[in-house]
Design a binder for these strands. Structure first.
Lengths: 344, 344
DNA sequence: ACAGGTGGATCGAAGTAGGCT
DNA sequence: AAGCCTACTTCGATCCACCTG
C-alpha cells in the first residue's frame, strides 16, 4: 500500500524513467505528436497510469501561453436562465477539454462587469463568456478589457459586430402579445422587468410592437425587478389605480406568480376575469394557480452555442472577427392562465 | 491611442526598467516584502499602473506551488440551494483573493463526484468544495482523490472527522412536524425528496422522529425527486389511495407547489381541508396559493462558512485535521398554508 | 543595519537541433 | 528513414546568496 501522494509531485521525468524512455518521448505521447512507435507509446501510457501522473498545468501554460480554462462572468446565478446557461456552458466546455472559472457579479452594472473581467484576467483564461444582459454595455470598453482574449456576449442584443448569441426576446414579446390579441383582448397591462436589462427592454418592445401593430396601446406599463414580490406589488398598484384591464403580461414567470397572488387576494379570477402571461417557462410555472401560459426560452441551447462560438475564436484566432451573431427563437406555451376576455 | 495589448506580454522586467529599479525590487513590492522604501515602492506601483502589468499566474504558481483558485464540485446549480451556496462561496473567495473553478455534475452519483474532482485536479486548485449531498459518500475515497489538497464537504452529514459545514436538516424536519402536531394534526402524509440525497433522508428522519415522539406514525410516505412535477404526481396518488390525511409535508418548496396544485384540482382546500408544509423558503413560496409555511435555510451563511473553513485548511495546513464540523440551524416560517385541522 | 542591486538557480513542461541506430 | 535519445533553451516569476552604499 503505497502512500499515494496526489500532490502531483511526479513529473514527466519520473514517467520517463519508469517507462525507460526519455522525457522527450513522454512529451510526444502526451501531446500526440507523430513519430512514436505504438509499443513505446503503450509503455509510456502505462507508466502514466501507474504513477498517476498529472501534467503540471502551470508549467504547461507557462510555455504554451494557454491555460485551458474559460472564464464566465455571470449575473444572477440564482435565476433560472443564467443558471441554465452556466451549467450548459460548463458541461460543453469540459467535453471540449476546457475548465471553467466563474465569477458572479452581485449587481448588474458596467462597473461590476469590468471588475468581473479583471478578476478573471488574473486567472488568465483563454476566453470570456459574458452572461450579463445589461443594456447599453460599452462593447468597445469590454473589447479593450479583454484585450487579445476572445469573448462572447450572451443575451446582449446590441452586438455591434461582436461575436454573440442571443435569444430573440423581441419576437418572444410579440408572440405573447399576439396570443392575447388573438384571444380578443384589448385592455392589456404590462409588467416589465428592469429596463436596465436588455431582455426586459426587448420583451417590452415586442409587446408594444404587437399592440401598436394591432392599433392598441397598453393600458398601463409598470417596471419591476424580476422578483415575485415586485410582480405582487405592481399588480396591487395596478388594481388600486382602477384602470380596467383584461390581460396582464409579466416580464418573467416569477413576476407572473406574484401577480397571480395579488389578483387572487382581490378576488379577481384568472383567467376568466384577467388573463396572465409569463416569460421563461420555469419548471414550476406548470403548477401555478392556474398553470401559466408563458414563452419558453432554450437557455441550454444558448449556452452550448455560445461556447461553440467562443471556442472557434479561441482555437482559430484568425476568423474570430468574422463570427456571426446567432439568434434563437422562443416559443409560446399555452396553458390555463389565458383565455378570451369576458363579453361586456 | 496606443494599441493597448492586454495579452499580458509585459513582464516584471519591463516594470523594473520603467521604474528604474531591479526586478527583485518589483517582486518585493508585489509580494509585500519588507525592506522597500516608500518612495521606491510608489515608483514601482506607478510603473505597474501605467504599463498595466499583470503578473503571469502560470509562472507564479509554477514556483509557489499554488494556483490561487479553489474548485467547486456542485450538483444541481439550477436548484435554489446549491446556486445560493455557489454564489456565496465565490463572493467570499474573491474577497480573500482566490478565484473559483466550477464543475457541476449532471447526476448525483459517486462516480460523477469523482469525475468532477479529477477535472478540477487538472486545473490544479488549492482546495475543493463539494456541494454534493449524496448519502453514504465514501469519505475515504474522496480523501484519497483529493490527496494533499484540502477539501470541505457542504451538506454532508456523515462527516466522519472531515472538515465540513452542515445545516441540521433533521432538526428542520422536527421543526416542521412539531408545528403540525402543535396545531393538532394527527393524520400526516410525507412527501420526501429522493432518499439518495442526504438532505432528503435527514428531513424525513426529522419528521418521523417528531411524529414518533408524539405517538403517531405518518399515514403515508412517498418519495419524489424535488421537482414540482413529482410533488404533483405523488399527491395525486395519495388522493387516489383514499387514505385520509389532514396535513402534507413536502421535501422542498417546489414539491409543495406541485402538491398544492394537485389538491386544488381535486377541490381540496388549503389549509382548511389539508395543511401543506414546504422546505427551503425559496423567494417564490411567499406567493404560492396560499403562501407557504416552510423551513428556511441559510444557504448563504453555509457557503461563506464553508469557504472560511477551507481557507483555514489551505493557508495553515497543520491544523487542517482539527477543523470542527460546523452546524447551522434552520428556522420555521409560518404562513397561510397551515392551520388547525377541522373538527370532525 | 537598512535599502536595494546583481546574478544566479528553480519550478515543470515544451520545443528545437543534431545525432545515433 | 522512422524512431528515439541527449542536450539545451524558453516561458515568467520567486527566492536565495551575496554584495554595496
Amino acid at each position: 500500500m503505497p502512500p499515494f501522494v496526489s500532490g502531483s509531485r511526479v513529473t514527466i521525468h519520473d514517467v520517463a524513467r519508469h517507462a525507460g524512455v526519455s522525457h522527450q518521448t513522454v512529451s510526444r505521447v502526451i501531446n500526440e505528436h507523430l513519430s512514436v512507435a505504438p509499443s513505446t507509446r503503450q509503455k509510456v501510457l502505462e507508466a502514466i497510469e501507474t504513477l498517476k501522473y498529472q501534467p503540471n498545468q502551470a508549467a504547461r501554460s507557462l510555455v504554451t501561453q494557454r491555460s485551458g480554462t474559460l472564464g464566465i462572468v455571470s449575473f444572477g446565478l440564482t435565476y433560472y436562465g443564467p443558471a441554465q446557461m452556466v451549467v450548459n456552458i460548463e458541461r460543453a466546455a469540459r467535453l471540449r477539454g476546457y475548465g471553467v472559472a466563474l465569477t458572479s457579479i452581485p449587481e448588474l452594472s458596467e462597473g461590476e462587469i469590468e471588475r468581473g473581467l479583471l478578476e478573471l484576467r488574473k486567472q488568465s483564461v483563454d476566453g470570456f463568456l459574458l452572461v450579463a444582459p445589461l443594456r447599453g454595455v460599452n462593447t468597445e470598453r469590454i473589447r479593450s478589457l479583454c484585450g487579445h482574449t476572445p469573448f462572447v456576449l450572451l443575451d446582449a442584443a446590441e452586438t455591434g459586430g461582436t461575436p454573440g448569441v442571443t435569444i430573440d426576446q423581441m419576437s418572444g414579446g410579440r408572440l405573447a402579445a399576439q396570443h392575447l390579441l388573438d384571444l380578443g383582448h384589448e385592455h392589456i397591462a404590462l409588467l416589465s422587468g428592469p429596463q436596465r436589462w436588455h431582455d426586459a427592454r426587448l420583451r417590452l418592445e415586442g409587446w408594444r410592437a404587437a399592440l401598436t401593430h394591432a392599433g392598441y396601446t397598453p393600458v398601463s406599463v409598470l417596471e419591476g425587478d424580476w422578483t415575485a414580490a415586485s410582480g405582487f406589488g405592481l399588480t396591487q398598484e395596478l388594481l388600486a389605480s382602477r384602470i380596467p384591464f383584461t390581460a396582464l403580461v409579466a416580464g418573467n414567470d416569477q413576476m407572473a406568480l406574484g401577480a397571480l397572488w395579488a389578483l387572487h387576494e382581490r378576488g379577481v379570477a384568472v383567467p376568466s376575469d384577467v388573463s396572465v402571461l409569463g416569460f421563461d417557462d420555469i419548471p414550476e410555472s406548470r403548477f401555478f394557480h392556474p398553470p401559466l401560459t408563458t414563452v419558453r426560452q432554450d437557455f441550454a441551447a444558448l449556452g452550448a452555442l455560445s461556447l461553440a462560438a467562443l471556442l472557434e475564436a479561441v482555437e482559430s484566432p484568425r476568423e474570430a472577427q468574422a463570427l456571426p451573431t446567432r439568434v434563437l427563437l422562443p416559443e409560446l406555451v399555452v396553458r390555463a392562465s389565458t383565455t378570451s376576455p369576458r363579453r361586456t
